[in-house]
Amino acid sequence: MSIAFRVNGRDVSVESEPDARLLWVLREQLQLTGTRYGCGTGLCGACMVHVDGDRAFSCQTSLHEVAGRSVTTIEGLSPDSSHPVQKAWLAESVPQCGYCQSGQIMSAADLLAKTPNPTRDQIVEHMSTNLCRCGTYPRIVRAIERAAKEA
């Protein structure tokens, strides 16, 4: 069946099973490959996107759940990497392999949208949903603190 929703400000209509996972619809039907597959079970956060402004594991989100709603992926966070979180990520040289970083950035942007000046404990609590095997956590904390200051 056909399901209509909005992705990065654009209206789309996708032919798929209603229980298809948003992650794979984004990656393989809409070619938005910035959203990553890491575990498929909501444990790593590499697939994190925003749905109506709240972060969501796209691998755990069924297509029918986003019908009529607005999805933002890393590609839509800003047109030119100018979101304060993206700028801070470069300033602190956060990414190593980079594979998890779209999800990290989407989680961080969600945190700062709701808590513009988070404490260190709030950052750690919020960001512990997202795994980074390269171990960039110390820099993620610094980048979020920087983005909060510079936003």
Partner: peptide, 16 residues
Amino acid sequence: LPTKVNGTADYAINVA
């Protein structure tokens, strides 16, 4: 690095 903050980094899993 810039490709790793905007989703465009070219991992093989993205090839289509």
